[in-house]
């Protein structure tokens, strides 16, 4: 992989369930330092895309390459460079916070991981909960544990699916800071969210999805240029509704079977 190679490359990705097309012919490239927002109505295909990139769903068509490794051909190497934080992380109830980190360290073959894990606990105010069972934690705390687990192995590509749900304001600020820092250190981040204000504040690029297809992919400035005539006053919300035409989502049309 050369310096200019993308960390995440998706080419012609489609996902269909019988006659229902969840995602159609999606392509994107993410380079080190990119923070890409994935926005769209409910049912637009955001979670399907993220779950396919992390290996939970199998693409109906297309290829996904992570850090130079084809996810289908070499899933172990591809997934070694990636981390995924689901929208409502379901942890192992019988394991403590520290044991979750221990499992992640073992799974990714980390050595000397304990100081890094201690710092992550400190960063996310989890140190007092270190030896608590995750079943005893609030949703926000469980979200922080999932993020700490995702960060521990220093992944090159990090996928966040609605990561701010359940977090308190300090938690949101910490997570945003950490995302910016990780991107600064060379990671590529995909960030799915409905909070367009946060997206505008945090992300360098945006992928607007509607009805399973990409309506726009590029920088936020390019999005303003294209959908708001380059108006510097246009918010991402204006851009978003202009891009999607305010069209009614596929909610209720058919639930995503995944």
């Amino acid at each position: 992989m050369t310096e200019t190679s993308p960390l995440l490359s998706v080419r012609g990705f489609s996902k269909t369930y019988k006659d229902f097309v969840a995602v159609r012919d999606l392509s994107l490239d993410l380079h080190p330092g990119d923070i890409m927002a994935l926005v769209g109505h409910n049912g637009a295909g955001k979670t399907t895309t993220l779950r396919a990139v992390c290996g939970i769903l199998t693409p109906s068509a297309g290829t996904i390459v992570i850090n130079g490794h084809d996810l289908a051909a070499d899933p172990i190497a591809a997934k070694s460079a990636m981390a995924y934080v689901p929208d409502d992380p379901r942890l192992f109830d019988a394991l403590t916070v520290w044991e979750h980190l221990r499992f992640v360290a073992s799974a990714y073959g980390l050595r000397g991981w304990e100081p890094a894990a201690e710092r992550l606990l400190e960063d996310f105010e989890l140190t007092p909960k270190r030896d608590r069972l995750t079943m005893e934690l609030s949703r926000g705390m469980r979200q922080k544990v999932a993020v700490a687990c995702a960060y521990l192995h220093d992944p090159r590509v990090i996928l966040f699916d609605e990561p701010l749900t359940g977090l308190d304001p300090p938690g949101i600020r910490r997570l945003k800071d950490s995302i910016t820092r990780r991107a600064g250190e060379g990671a590529a981040i995909v960030f799915s969210s409905h909070l367009l204000g946060v997206v505008e504040d945090l992300c360098t690029r945006v992928l607007i999805m509607s009805r399973g297809a990409a309506r726009f992919s590029g920088t936020i400035a390019q999005a303003r240029e294209r959908f708001a005539g380059g108006s510097g006053h246009a918010t991402l919300e204006d851009v978003y509704f202009s891009a999607t035409g305010g069209d009614d989502p596929r909610d209720g049309e058919r639930e995503n079977p995944s």
């Binding site: 499992f103 073992s106 799974a107 990714y108 890094a116």
Partner: peptide, 25 residues
């Protein structure tokens, strides 16, 4: 706020039952 990365990592574990999963059990 950042966590220094771990010291090192072993290569991908391609054994029948990787150590991470053994540990999880």
């Amino acid at each position: 706020m950042t966590a220094a990365p771990p010291d090192s990592r072993q290569g991908p574990d391609r054994s029948v039952l990787p150590r991470g999963l053994r540990r999880l059990i």
